[in-house]
């Protein structure tokens, strides 16, 4: 318990505080905290000029733009379709609904490498869909569009799973009241339903966005990894590592973490504001 002084608990008769604290802190430190500290330390000890050069190089900036841009657009598309599918699952009855509901989590359960090769096979120029659009001169795989599609796939369940319970809880009274007052269906959607699920929608958006930024496995196969065109940030880290440029890898990783955390914090602040404005929905 002497080690537990900063964590001194309120007295409790339940046993095991020291033991569970010991196991948790040891595990957390060895597996997560010390390794992440090593990352920050390595990035901080890199030559500042090299850091600047690396961060502002055209290739890094292109990857940064692609990673964050495609992730943002993918999360946006997921927000729209996620809301619709959550609505479908909560408010409509159709045969096989339970099956569809269970299948929503497939992108969580399917290993990313499998998703990656499958998407590549679908959207490659000789693939199922890629082959259909190729004669029209449209290329999906090996372009930023491919990156976007992979990111839509991995982020898909987040919005559905955050919005679904909120929609299920929401009383239909309000909608009915609005209908009685003569509001049109579109009007009800935009003035009654949407504001109620906004906080959950934003949460789902942030989760999908964060996941897409960091995603590697499902993206690299379909991306083709053309420098300046379809290279994502995580891939740049891997490339640096393969060149044994540990400092460069650490710098890009830190940059990615920082930008992601700032963006997520900003969206969380927006979410807090929405929630506040809606009187804590």
């Amino acid at each position: 318990m002497s080690l537990a002084i900063p964590f001194k608990p309120k007295p409790s008769i339940l046993p095991g505080f020291g033991l569970s604290l010991g196991i948790t802190l040891t595990g957390l430190s060895l597996i997560v905290l010390i390794p992440l500290a090593a990352l920050l330390l390595r990035a901080a000890s890199a030559d500042p000029n090299e850091i600047l050069e690396l961060v502002t190089s055209a290739r890094t900036l292109a990857a940064l733009r692609l990673s964050f841009g495609a992730a943002f657009l993918a999360a946006l598309l997921n927000a729209v379709f996620g809301l619709m599918i959550a609505w479908l699952l909560v408010r409509h009855e159709f045969p096989g609904k339970r099956l569809v509901d269970a299948a929503i989590d497939l992108p969580f359960a399917l290993p990313t490498a499998v998703a990656g090769v499958a998407l590549a096979a679908i959207y490659a120029p000789n693939g199922w869909i890629g082959g259909l659009v190729a004669p029209l001169g449209v290329k999906i795989a090996y372009t930023p569009a491919g990156v976007f599609i992979a990111m839509v796939f991995v982020g898909m369940p987040f919005v559905i799973r955050t919005v679904q319970p909120v929609l299920a809880e929401a009383e239909t009274d309000v909608e009915e009241a609005a209908a009685l007052l003569g509001a049109s269906r579109m009007r009800i959607v935009f003035t009654v339903i949407l504001p109620g699920v906004m906080p959950a929608l934003l949460t789902g958006f942030v989760l999908a966005f964060a996941r897409a930024i960091g995603e590697y496995g499902s993206v690299i196969f379909i991306a083709g990894n053309v420098p300046m065109v379809s290279e994502i940030l995580p891939l740049l880290i891997v490339i640096r590592l393969e060149q044994f440029d540990y400092a460069g890898a650490a710098v890009i990783a830190t940059l990615m973490l920082v930008v992601a955390f700032v963006l997520i914090a900003a969206i969380n602040a927006l979410q807090g504001w929405t929630r506040h404005r809606l009187g804590d929905a």
């Binding site: 997560v32 010390i34 390794p35 992440l36 090593a38 990352l39 390595r42 990313t112 964060a210 930024i213 960091g214 995603e215 590697y216 496995g217 940030l233 995580p234 891939l235 880290i237 891997v238 590592l241 540990y246 890898a249 650490a250 990783a253 990615m256 973490l257 992601a260 955390f261 997520i264």
Partner: peptide
């Protein structure tokens, strides 16, 4: 925390160590 860290970074940190 590990949920919001890219898997590539999760691998990288052990290489750095």
């Amino acid at each position: 925390l590990p949920f919001s860290v890219s898997p590539v970074i999760a691998g990288l940190v052990y290489i750095l160590l």
